[in-house]
Design a protein around this nucleic acid. Structure first.
Lengths: 225, 225
DNA sequence: ATTATTTTTTAGACTAATCTAAATTTAATT
DNA sequence: AATTAAATTTAGATTAGTCTAAAAAATAAT
């Protein structure tokens, strides 16, 4: 049986590209040592991989000069991040994982290779734009929703928003949200801002009115509608 | 950082164990060549792996004598089969994959390592006992449903079952089944029982509705879901 | 019961990803 | 500008999994 060798990237290559992508969010060029630290490996191993990724035209690399991603490399990285975040969403929304339990499993699931699978998961979740940590989920073309999440505490009176994530992942906080019926994707409107302590009166999904402290509001991430 | 070497099996080891398990369903001992063929590899590679699996006490192996699984090896194989079949079920039931589209993806998903994940998928699917092909799904202890087949004619209204075999093996009957599109492993639901002659209206695979006589129903063996 | 054939194993080599230790290049400091 | 320190790369090994070709064992056939 003939086996088409479709230019696939190994798990390891994918992980390097993802690490480089994340490091590039802060810097314009990333160093060998930074990658080694992030990947929990040694600089010599990184150098070897950089040559390989460079040969495959996934990164821009000149000896001793650090690396950046090519358009092709960035696309690959974004698709992995897309898969990672969609799987995290799936685990939380459909399989009742806690927000702090999903990472290790998503690290594995992000490498599953099936366009149909990820398209169906996306659909099953109703095309979420943010993952449970409030991070944006790139679409199938690698484009992000251009709005980024902000703390609920930064909103003004009568502003309208959608809950996208949390800052504090402690189970104490998550349990509080649970008890209060505040769930990812909820529509939240600021009904009153108490000047004294910056506590808020909010309407959740246009009916459930409740009071939350500024401390809580600072830990809830939202996008403004 | 100290890395605990938790006796994990690689993807490759898992695939060998699964292949051996499947070959053992027909034979009491399996040969190097049979494994090579199933794994799409060469006999020499198989020999190397057999030594490794034997060292890990996952198989019983004596040079030139073929192999069988140890209790430990069988447990590992069963857990992979469990994961494979649960994932297939998930893909078909929740993500609207067709039966013939699920295999390749399930081959990847079966190696994801997370007890919680598989427990939750099982729960999410409401603890199915059979996969979309009618194959039984081992439980978390590696036990299969030891339910015995009964004639379809013994079921009550709206009961749900899986076709497992026939009583009458005549070619006339088998041709009738073929023509009616009733295949081993099919999901069958009793939609109506005609009191007068005990004939049935059934839904095959949740869509294909047809009428069968009591005579036919007596000759179709099923297990109740 | 020998010989021929098939099956299985060994020997030696290859690739991907990693490592340590040494060499080289760049950056920082006097 | 010269020297020291830090970062990076090279050289050479290692491990998992694979391969080809040759050797050894088991099976089949005369």
């Amino acid at each position: 049986m003939s086996q088409i060798t479709l230019q696939m990237n190994s798990f390891t290559e994918e992980n390097y590209l993802k690490a480089i992508y994340k490091l590039l969010e802060n810097e314009t060029v990333v160093t060998t040592n930074a990658i080694a630290e992030k990947m929990n490996t040694k600089a010599a191993s990184v150098t070897d991989m950089l040559k390989k990724l460079s040969d495959k035209k996934l990164i821009n690399y000149q000896k001793y000069q650090g690396v950046s991603l090519t358009a092709k490399g960035e696309k690959v990285a974004l698709m992995i991040i897309r898969k990672h975040r969609l799987w995290e969403m799936f685990l939380v929304e459909k399989l009742s994982f806690k927000w702090d339990e999903v990472h290790d499993v998503a690290e594995q699931l992000e490498h599953i290779d099936s366009d149909k699978l990820i398209a169906q998961i996306d659909k099953f979740l109703n095309y979420p734009k943010f993952d449970p940590h409030g991070d944006p989920i790139p679409d199938a073309n690698g484009k992000f929703q251009l709005q980024k999440s902000v703390p609920l505490s930064s909103l003004k009176l009568s502003e309208h928003c959608i809950m996208t994530g949390v800052v504090d992942h402690s189970s104490a906080f998550l349990q509080y949200l649970d008890k209060s019926g505040i769930v990812l994707g909820n529509d939240i409107k600021i009904k009153e801002v108490i000047a004294f302590d910056k506590s808020l009166q909010i309407a959740v999904n246009k009916k459930n009115t409740l009071f939350i402290s500024n401390e809580v509001a600072k830990n809830i991430l939202v996008i403004i509608k």
